[in-house]
Design a protein around this nucleic acid. Structure first.
Length: 1109
RNA sequence: GGGCGGAUAGCUCAGCGGUAGAGCGUCGCCCUUACAAGGCGAGGGUCACAGGUUCGAAACCUGUUCCGCCCACCA
């Protein structure tokens, strides 16, 4: 005994009440890593599973995109590792040529006011390396914070010796195969960075600009050709004017020349059907082959000379005559001004100009003629297309397949050289001239790994960063050494998981390179995740100030560090959510093909989930006593309770569902399944149900419940581990189970086990849950305090249901807060009881003396309406004769059964409504005209026509009138009393209440209920009454009217309700109500009735309701 | 100009041919001895619009309107 208390105390001390992620998360990662759990074994006999982490920029810092990537991949890796795979998750960083060089240059300028040219190449590179040494480890450390189970022993960097060697090898081989060449072409030039860019590194955007019409005088003629252009300054480099060869306006001029204004150069008028669209502008196009892609092509077609008018910074060069030295935009202004002056500017109109902008600098790219290295891409692309067509690599979600094909089929040669310093210097060598100079333009380079003998100079350019990235799936595994064990074991990789924004930059190129150099696809599956956005769906960017740092989420952050939107939610700063919560959130938000809008509320919700897991474990550990799991005894071999069997069966479903979801990359679904099971079934039901045996006296029941609790927790934790590695490990270590492995990281992932399935238990639990929920609904609707123990009657026609409820009353009673549970067949209903009518049972909770029956009535009416509405929906189907004829028979049957069920439900609800209706005697409807009921009653009610009271009262009154007062049950008496009360006849009311009480005491419960179903349809008497009290939409009327009279008067404690509920549409009728009341008040004829309603009501419920409230 | 995705509860999203779902938020009652980061209950939706296919459509087809992304050399 005392030991048990001690154990409990100890457990309690060990597990704090609230989960604190900070301490737990910091503790586990080093342990896992140091023990080598994440280190892959190339010689393992287990099946291999490999993912390479998309290498983040070395100098980068973790953002939510990384966090999402890491989360998804870690889920896959941990899941597979636990499922018996030999897993390699390979980390690395990318040298990120342009980005890193820019960062260091900026820093250099800031601290030393120097440019890279001031330092020189060698010194500058030293600085970049130093920078890399300083910050390169940061992003890796940040991944560890997230719990990413990466194999750090294999960490790579794109400029490592090994990877660099692979880069050289690929360059040389491609060159020798004729797939890599050097050429002078028009490329995208960044005038700020002074480098070429690939097409992918350019963004197109429309900006406000102008379309200028400029007159070019035709030589030896008075005619002028008017060209349309958005870039007038480029006319300095014009070498032709083009018209459509069939254009009647200009046809005759083809072959002549124009004199280029400002420059006075004579250039030909050519006909070119490809370039010129006669419909557009003036139908005349100036041709500047050196500065426009279209014009370049035109120049090629027509053998036009090319005049380069810009230098590397896009300033006008010596070819620009008087404009030399001007920046291109300055030159534009000057050219326009000069043209205007010479009256050659015909028109200047606003125009949306398509602009090509450098992704890096945001500056308009200047098409520039230059020598660059290109990969001849078509042959590589063809193979990569075929691989996907053949299904050797598949995309998830599949929709990306088309995007991939679309790009691959229209691919252009890849410009791979960059005029940067930071990167893989191109292994090409140029002969040094006798003067010690190198002519990079006209000399032919030698491509070789090392400098050849003699005076050679290496190509100063470096390779596009994506060139080395394209090799990542094999360059990291030891290639070009074909015998490298890692390469043999882990190529092809299993999955490439990355953002869809780099499908062209990276995925497509890995496909091409992998297939070409390895002879097989680099990965079997490409899983492309969505982009993480802020809550409004906007891209997170520093300029917008909406960037949320994942580490702030994990560790918490002062308000000042948070973007405005988040700060509003956490004015005191954001609490530490923990990596587990962040990971679970991200996993829950993954859906296919759409953006992820990250909501901090959602993260907070999952932090709460962590706490729930924690406390479920805490509960278990506090109640396990000295239980120690016996691995030889399979859980189902124990003598189990119904709840035990039920939860095991449910657990098994959760396991099966999670496995399926994971196998299909449905991370959100997997997360949701675990969440629902753990919280909605294990905690809400099983833990609560387990208390009866845990706190009970039966030692066997206690032990088996402890065993099941332990079993479930063990499985849940393992199921959850890939999503929430830290908390699951922390708890798992404390479970009294026999651990064959020292960490949950190495434990086996739960597998579906048919032996746990128990359909019978699940079926048997249904009525129990239904009964509990039904009673709780009544409780909630009647605003009964959870502390108040109540009585419930459950009636069911099914023997099974009755037996189950009877047998498991130990479940039902505490869960529903009952002091007494009566289970019986259908029969007389308890008086003044709230009811919940369900398919398999009717639940009654006597409310007399506890609660306001008016609310119960409202509820019942609502229920009836709801059921009627549903019948309406189904009946609508049957109105169409084709439905019964053509729809599947089982469906039609189902609908018929449903109607029957609903009808019986309505009947029962109406019956119940009738039984508690009298309280509702609404004198209010002034339909009765000026009849003063009170007066009439005093005259023994003779000859009075009652203005539509509910049937029961009517009956009672009828009986009274007939002088059969003796026939009144105590129930009738009570009702009558209420009726008197409503009419202000207090004395009469008290008399009836007293008699009712006497009658009750005398007759006992049985007698009181005896009057179960008298006179079902007493309505036969007068057509005035709406007899069945239901059936038609007409019912709605009274439902609407009621509140008018009753609510203001009776409901003083609940007045809030109507006051608060403004946003609902339903308000409309309520608004009408007061108007009617007012009208009634004004009408002189109804004055007495109105007065009574107003005055009498407040008193109405008192006698019954005073007790509890 | 092409292509793709989206439009469902106040918010974020599931559902993708057969009675509209979840989480968060809201409202009501509760600090019940695992958890107030909690428990129990409730309210809340002409599933963007218009046609069509079907016995039946939120779902399939067509069109429209918005929103987002990608690709493209129209001066």
């Amino acid at each position: 005994m005392s030991t048990e208390t001690e154990t409990r105390a100890a457990a309690k001390a060990e597990l704090p009440k609230a989960y604190e992620p900070a301490e737990v998360e910091a503790r586990w990662y080093p342990i896992w890593n140091d023990r080598g759990y994440f280190t892959a074994d190339p010689h393992s006999t287990k099946p291999a599973y490999c993912i390479v982490l998309p290498p983040p920029n070395v100098t980068g810092s973790l953002h939510l995109g990384h966090a999402l990537t890491a989360t998804i991949q870690d889920i896959l890796i941990r899941w597979k590792r636990m499922s018996g795979f030999n897993c390699l998750w390979l980390p690395g960083t990318d040298h990120a040529g342009i980005a890193t060089q820019m960062v260091v240059e900026r820093e250099l300028m800031k601290t030393e006011k120097k440019t890279r040219h001031d330092l020189g190449r060698e010194e500058f590179l030293k600085r970049v390396w130093a920078w890399k040494e300083k910050f390169g480890a940061r992003i890796g450390e940040q991944h560890k914070v997230l719990g990413a189970s990466l194999d750090w022993t294999r960490e790579r960097f794109t400029m490592d010796a090994g990877v660099s060697d692979a880069v050289k090898e690929v360059f040389i081989r491609l060159h020798s195969e004729g797939l890599l060449y050097r050429a002078q072409k028009l490329i995208n030039w960044d005038p700020v960075l002074h480098t070429a860019l690939s097409d992918l590194e350019v963004d197109n955007e429309e900006r406000d600009g102008f379309l200028w019409h400029i007159a070019y005088p035709v030589k030896d003629s008075t005619e002028r050709l008017v060209v349309a252009t958005t870039r007038p300054e480029t006319m300095l480099g014009d070498t032709a004017v083009a018209v459509h060869p069939e254009d009647p306006r200009y046809k005759h001029l083809i072959g002549k020349t124009v004199v280029l204004p400002l420059v006075n150069r004579e250039i030909p008028i050519i006909g070119d059907a490809i370039l010129v669209n006669p419909e557009f502008g003036t139908g005349v196009v100036k041709v500047t082959p050196a500065h426009d892609h279209n014009d370049y092509a035109t120049g090629q077609r027509n053998n036009l000379p090319m005049i380069n008018i810009f230098d590397e910074s896009a300033r006008v060069n010596e070819n620009g005559g008087p404009y030399a030295g001007l920046d291109r935009f300055e030159a534009r202004k000057r050219v326009v001004a000069d043209l205007k002056e010479r009256e050659l500017l015909i028109e200047e109109k606003p125009y949306k100009v398509p602009l090509a902008l450098s992704q890096r600098t945001g500056v308009p790219v200047e098409p520039r003629l230059s020598w660059q290295w290109y990969v001849k891409i078509k042959p590589l692309a063809d193979a990569a297309i075929a691989a996907v067509e053949q299904g050797r690599t598949k995309f998830v979600p599949e929709t990306w397949t088309n995007t991939y094909f679309g790009w691959m089929r229209n691919i252009h040669d890849w410009c791979v050289s960059r005029q940067l310093w930071w990167g893989h210097q191109i292994p090409a060598w140029y002969p040094m001239g006798p003067d010690g100079k190198v002519d990079f333009e006209s000399s032919t380079p030698v491509v070789a790994r090392e400098k050849p003998e003699g005076d050679w100079v290496q190509d100063p350019d470096v390779l596009d960063t994506w060139f080395s990235s394209a090799l990542w799936p094999f360059s990291t595994l030891g290639w070009p050494n074909a015998d490298a064990p890692d390469l043999k074991t882990f190529y092809p990789n299993s999955v490439m998981e990355t953002g869809h924004d780099i499908i062209f930059f990276w995925v497509a190129r890995m496909m091409m390179m992998g297939i070409h150099f390895m002879g097989d696809v680099p990965f079997r599956t490409v899983y492309l995740h969505a982009m993480v956005r802020d809550e409004k769906g906007e891209k997170m960017s520093k300029t917008k100030g909406n960037v949320i740092d994942p580490l702030d989420i994990v560790r918490g952050a002062p308000a000042a560090n948070l973007p405005a939107a988040v700060r509003n939610k956490f004015p005191q700063g954001m609490p530490a959510m923990g990596a587990d919560a962040l990971r679970f959130t991200l996993a829950s938000l993954t859906q296919q093909g759409r953006d992820i809008k990250l909501s901090v509320d959602r993260i907070a919700g999952y932090k709460a989930f962590c706490n729930k897991v924690w406390n479920a474990a805490r509960f278990a550990l506090m109640n396990l006593g000295d239980y120690q799991d016996d691995p030889k005894l399979f859980i189902k071999e124990r003598s189990l309770s119904l709840a035990d069997r039920w939860i095991l069966s449910r657990l098994n479903r959760a396991i099966a569902g999670t496995q399926t979801a994971l196998a299909n990359y449905h991370f959100a679904e997997a997360a949701s399944l675990i969440y629902q099971f753990l919280w909605g079934e294990f905690c809400d039901w099983y833990i609560e149900l387990s208390k009866s045996s845990l706190y009970g006296d039966d030692p066997h029941a206690k032990t088996s419940t402890r065993a099941v609790l332990t079993f479930c927790l063990d499985h849940i934790l393992r199921l959850l581990h890939p999503f929430m590695p830290f908390i699951t490990e922390e708890i798992w270590q404390k479970l009294p189970i026999l651990r064959e492995v020292e960490s949950i990281c190495l434990a086996t992932y739960p597998m579906e086990d048919r032996r746990l399935d128990d359909r019978a238990a699940e079926e048997e639990m249904k009525p129990i849950i239904e009964a509990i929920e039904g009673i709780r609904t009544i409780r909630g609707e009647s605003n009964l305090s959870p502390a108040l123990k109540i009585e419930a009657h459950v009636q069911s026609s099914s023997d099974d249901v009755r037996q189950t409820l009877d047998r498991w009353r130990a479940y039902v009673m505490p869960m529903a807060g009952l002091k007494k549970l009566t289970v019986m067949g259908l029969g007389p209903k308890p008086p003044q009881a709230a009811a919940d009518i369900r398919a398999q049972m009717e639940i009654y909770v006597p409310l007399a003396g506890i609660v306001d029956l008016a609310e119960e009535r409202e509820r019942l009416k609502k229920e009836i309406e709801k059921a009627e509405k549903e019948i309406g929906v189904i009946n609508k189907k049957f109105e169409n004769p084709n439905y019964a004829a053509r729809a599947p028979a089982d469906l039609v049957e189902k609908d018929k059964a449903r109607i029957a069920e609903l009808e019986s439900r309505i009947q029962k609800l109406s019956d119940n409504l009738k039984r508690i209706a009298p309280v509702e005697v609404r004198i209010a409807p002034p339909a009765a005209g000026s009849v003063n009921l009170g007066e009439e009653l005093k005259e023994e009610l003779s000859g009075v026509s009652v203005p539509d009271p509910d049937n029961q009262v009517k009956e009672a009154l009828d009986k009274l009138r007939e002088g059969t007062k003796e026939g009144l049950s105590s129930r009738d008496r009570y009702d009558l009393g209420v009726a008197y009360m409503n009419m202000g006849l207090v004395d009469d009311a008290v008399r009836e209440f007293n008699k009712a009480r006497e009658g009750d005491e005398a007759a006992g419960e049985a007698a009181a209920t005896a009057r179960g179903a008298p006179a079902k349809k007493p309505a036969a008497k007068k057509p005035a009454a709406k007899k069945p009290a239901a059936k038609k939409p007409a019912v709605k009327k009274p439902a609407v009217k009621k509140p008018t009279v009753k609510k203001p008067a009776v409901k003083k404690p609940t007045v809030k309700k109507p006051a608060v509920k403004k946003p609902t549409v339903k308000k409309a009728p309520a608004k009408k109500a007061p108007a009617k009341t007012a009208a009634a008040k004004k009408a002189p004829s109804s004055e007495p009735a109105a007065k009574q309603a107003a005055a009498g009501k407040p008193a109405s419920k008192k006698p019954a309701a005073t007790k509890k409230r």
